[in-house]
Measured scan of single mutants.
Amino acid sequence: MATGGRRGAAAAPLLVAVAALLLGAAGHLYPGEVCPGMDIRNNLTRLHELENCSVIEGHLQILLMFKTRPEDFRDLSFPKLIMITDYLLLFRVYGLESLKDLFPNLTVIRGSRLFFNYALVIFEMVHLKELGLYNLMNITRGSVRIEKNNELCYLATIDWSRILDSVEDNYIVLNKDDNEECGDICPGTAKGKTNCPATVINGQFVERCWTHSHCQKVCPTICKSHGCTAEGLCCHSECLGNCSQPDDPTKCVACRNFYLDGRCVETCPPPYYHFQDWRCVNFSFCQDLHHKCKNSRRQGCHQYVIHNNKCIPECPSGYTMNSSNLLCTPCLGPCPKVCHLLEGEKTIDSVTSAQELRGCTVINGSLIINIRGGNNLAAELEANLGLIEEISGYLKIRRSYALVSLSFFRKLRLIRGETLEIGNYSFYALDNQNLRQLWDWSKHNLTITQGKLFFHYNPKLCLSEIHKMEEVSGTKGRQERNDIALKTNGDQASCENELLKFSYIRTSFDKI
Rank of each mutant, 00 (worst) to 15 (best):
K224S: 10
S98Y: 04
E266S: 13
F66N: 02
L60Y: 00
L327K: 15
K193L: 04
C239L: 00
L174M: 07
T157K: 05
P79Q: 10
T329P: 04
S98G: 08
K176R: 09
N322Q: 13
K67V: 09
N308M: 04
Q245A: 14
T189Y: 03
N138E: 15
H214S: 15
C264T: 00
K176S: 11
G227Y: 13
T85P: 00
E71N: 14
R145D: 02
D288G: 10
L152I: 08
N325P: 12
C235G: 00
S296M: 10
M65W: 01
S166T: 04
N195P: 11
R263M: 02
D169V: 09
L164Y: 06
E124W: 03
D75K: 12
I163L: 14
P197F: 09
I222Q: 09
S54Q: 15
T85G: 04
S77Y: 14
T320P: 03
C328K: 00
P36L: 12
R141M: 04
N309M: 08
C223H: 03
C335E: 06
P31V: 12
D261A: 12
S143Q: 04
N175H: 14
E238C: 03
T140D: 07
S237W: 08
S284L: 06
P104T: 01
M125L: 05
H28K: 06
N308C: 01
P313D: 13
L327M: 07
R297F: 12
M321Q: 12
V218H: 10
S324Y: 03
D159P: 11
N242S: 12
I122V: 08
F205S: 07
L327S: 07
I158H: 05
Q61V: 12
W160C: 01
C315V: 01
D288N: 14
E151Q: 05
L50K: 00
L155T: 11
N117L: 05
N175T: 09
L88R: 01
S296H: 13
E124A: 08
Y94C: 07
P31F: 09
R74T: 11
S237Y: 08
N175F: 12
C228W: 01
V265A: 09
Y134E: 08
N295R: 13
N195A: 13
P197I: 13
Y94Q: 05
V121R: 01
G227R: 04
N175R: 06
D177Y: 12
W278Q: 03
Q216I: 03
T194S: 04
Y272R: 03
R256G: 04
K224V: 13
C153K: 03
T267Y: 03
E180V: 06
C196N: 04
N170Q: 12
C186E: 04
Y259D: 12
K100Y: 05
Q204T: 14
C311Q: 00
P79D: 10
N242V: 12
H302L: 04
Q303G: 12
N149M: 00
T211Y: 03
E314K: 12
G183I: 07
F78Q: 02
C153F: 01
G241W: 02
P313T: 09
L60I: 07
D169Q: 09
N135H: 06
N105Y: 06
K310I: 07
D165N: 06
L90T: 13
N309S: 10
T140C: 10
Y272P: 00
C335R: 02
L152W: 01
T320A: 11
P271A: 11
N179R: 06
D101G: 14
I146R: 01
G192M: 11
T45E: 01
I122W: 00
N242Q: 14
Y304F: 13
N325I: 03
R263I: 02
Q245L: 08
I201Y: 12
H59N: 08
C223V: 01
D247M: 03
T189D: 11
C268L: 01
E71L: 11
K193V: 02
N117W: 06
L89H: 02
Y319R: 03
L63I: 02
Y118N: 04
E266V: 11
I62W: 02
S143K: 08
N43E: 07
L50D: 00
A119T: 07
V55Y: 09
D177Q: 11
K294N: 03
G111F: 01
K67M: 04
K100L: 10
C243G: 00
F205Q: 14
T157E: 05
R74V: 02
H127Y: 02
C153N: 01
C53S: 00
Y87E: 00
G203N: 10
S324G: 11
I158D: 02
S213R: 12
R263G: 02
D159T: 11
W278S: 06
C223Y: 03
C209E: 04
H302Y: 10
H59P: 06
A254S: 10
G192K: 13
M65G: 04
H59M: 13
E33P: 14
M137R: 13
Q299A: 06
T194C: 12
T85D: 02
D159S: 06
F283I: 13
M137D: 03
E314T: 15
Q303P: 11
E49T: 09
G95Q: 15
Y259L: 09
E97L: 07
N202H: 10
I201P: 06
N309E: 12
C315T: 01
D72H: 04
L260C: 01
C215D: 08
N117Y: 10
S112L: 13
M137V: 12
P269Y: 02
C53R: 00
N308Q: 14
E49A: 06
Y87R: 00
T250M: 09
L44C: 05
P79K: 02
T250W: 09
C219A: 02
I306W: 15
L164D: 15
H48E: 11
T320D: 11
V121H: 10
V55R: 02
N170V: 09
D101N: 08
C196P: 05
F283N: 10
I109C: 00
S225L: 09
T199N: 06
Y118W: 14
I185V: 15
N325L: 11
D165K: 05
C255E: 00
K191D: 15
N135F: 02
N150A: 07
M38C: 05
P336S: 11
C53F: 00
Q303L: 07
F66R: 01
S296T: 11
C215W: 09
I306C: 10
P70N: 02
C243I: 00
C186V: 03
A230T: 05
D248I: 02
Q245W: 03
S98L: 00
T45R: 15
T229S: 09
Y94T: 13
T194V: 08
D75N: 15
I122L: 10
T211L: 12
Y30P: 06
V218A: 10
L60W: 01
R69I: 12
K193M: 12
T107G: 05
H307F: 08
F205H: 07
P334D: 12
E238T: 09
G333Q: 15
G37V: 04
C255I: 00
C219N: 14
C331G: 03
N257F: 08
Q276S: 10
W210G: 12
N295Q: 09
P104G: 02
E314G: 04
V108C: 04
D169I: 08
L120A: 04
T157Q: 10
V108K: 01
H290I: 07
C182D: 10
C228E: 01
D72E: 02
C311L: 04
E57D: 03
G183A: 11
C239A: 00
L88P: 00
L44N: 11
L174I: 10
L90C: 13
C328M: 01
C186N: 02
F205K: 14
D169Y: 08
E57H: 12
L332R: 13
D184V: 10
N295F: 08
R41I: 14
C228Q: 02
V206Y: 15
N295S: 09
Y304E: 03
K310F: 10
D39S: 06
G227P: 08
N202D: 10
I306F: 14
N179G: 14
G183D: 15
C223M: 01
D86L: 00
L99P: 01
L332C: 03
I84R: 00
L128S: 01
L326S: 06
V55L: 07
E180M: 08
I139Y: 01
L260T: 10
A198Q: 03
C35K: 00
E124K: 09
S77V: 04
K251I: 04
F73R: 04
R141Q: 15
H226K: 11
Y118A: 09
Q276R: 11
E147H: 12
D178T: 11
D247F: 09
L131K: 00
I312Q: 11
L136T: 02
C235T: 01
A156S: 07
S213N: 05
N202A: 11
C196Y: 02
L90P: 00
L44E: 07
K217P: 06
C234N: 01
E49G: 05
Y30N: 12
N309T: 10
D178V: 10
C35Y: 00
N42S: 08
W278H: 09
G111S: 01
C331L: 04
N52G: 13
I306A: 05
K80E: 02
E238R: 04
E231K: 01
